[in-house]
Design a protein around this nucleic acid. Sequence first.
RNA 1: GGGGCCGUGGUCUAGCUUGGUAGGAUGCCGGCCUUGGGAGCCGGAGGUCCCGGGUUCAAAUCCCGGCGGCCCCA
Length: 479
Amino acid sequence: MSEREAFELTPKGENFSRWFDEVLFKAEILDERYPVKGMYVWLPFGYELMENVMNVMERLMRQTGHRRVYFPGVVPEGVLSREFRFIKGFEDSIYWITRLGKQEIKEKLALRPTSEAIMYEVLNRWITSYKDLPLRIYQIVPVYRYETKATRPMLRVREIVFFKEGHTFHATYEDAVKQVELEVWIYKKFYDELLVPYVVVKTTPWDTFPGAKYNYDLITIMPDGKALELGSAINFGDLFARTYGLEYMDENGEKRNVNTTSFGISERSLAALIAIHGDDRGLKLPPKLAPIQIVVVPIPSKGYEDKVLEYAKEVYNALVGDYRVELDDTDERPGYKFFKWEMKGVPVRIEVGRKEYEERTLTLFRRDTMERSLVPFEDLRSRIEPLLGEIEEEMRRQAKEYFEKRTVHAKTVEEIRENVGEKIVSFPWCGLEECGHEVEEEIGYGILGYEENALEGKGEKCVICGREAKHRAWIGRSY
RNA sequence: GGGGCCGUGGUCUAGCUUGGUAGGAUGCCGGCCUUGGGAGCCGGAGGUCCCGGGUUCAAAUCCCGGCGGCCCCA
């Protein structure tokens, strides 16, 4: 990639991986040239975008009674390894601190791979009575996981920078069940706002997070046909609490175990947004999340340089304060600026040249459809709001179409085989473990999860045993 | 986990087979001319050739080891 091709991308349909790496760099989301594998520099534009994404989630979290906290980023080995089932899923991927300055350390410290152990260690002092429950907290911190597989920017990293993890504590199992339903609701609202399509599935018992009763995953599909896990809502029941001595006293003075859940998102959510909506010209950002919603580009011509620039400033001033707007008065040529702002996914561009100055009009360009329209200056403010809404609706429509094109419902194993790989395939499943395993063996991929009772009463038959199917299970390649 | 490709001014690269003056493009700085979809011309600055060791009169080039990056497959 040379600077000459600063605004050129490998076509997305030709090589998605390459397209994705290039767009992250050229749209100035990440600088991938940091000399530690799997760790990347977040550039200002990318950071602002990610902040906007996180703000959507934080708003939802606060609305539903979660409060932000901070727990330390290192944890002693003894605390971390107390729960064997827990560490089992992570033991190969932990970063250990084994020295302090020149001295060998007495007890190794781990960089947090997630924060359950760190929090639970302290929370048994916070929670003593039923009156302390429920407790809902979250934090946004980096977590470290030594990925042994090939790393990928934003998708498979060794430092997850924007890990937003919610942890909740409840008196009863039923309360925890309700909480997980709330978490799924939060996820849905969140990804609806990101314009990222998804399916919510329960994971199979044999693929459930170690130490969990069950968990729900949100799954989307990347342009290369692979499933990407977008988030997980986990019900631990009292399994974790028992290990860490999390107990409370109920109304009758009896000791009981706390029930806990956790859920989280990361920059993968942004990766999905970028991957699904971007095109061969770069990013396409939802108006609500774009760091710059509107860019004003003056197009000077001989003798009109000052007048055009003045007019462009007038346009800028009419919008600033209500919108995230930028006036690009840099000394570049218009064509260069067009490519640049399209790469960055700015939803609306306002072009202002001699013609617009003389007519007192504006040319509006929308990134999603690449269409231009001419409007009188007086109509600008009344036109811009509906336009941003239209762009969002169009992007939502495109996302739906995208998802439908990459999924299919199969009725037989043969049908699954014909489609899997290219698509993510759903199929009727009776719910029996042996039937699930048999599908996985026949197809060669794992079941991603199932939509619980989605097919109840629909008369569909399990693809293996032919009995009445209860669930719609999903299978396919995944990240 | 298996296989493959690669590392040279800020960026992308030529040179490596056959050891001998590091070349180009782009970007950057100054100037001129321009501006409706990546302009052009003139001048200028910018280099531990990823790191360590070895072979050699001589290493970007050959050998060994390490580090880092990318791609494909599972």
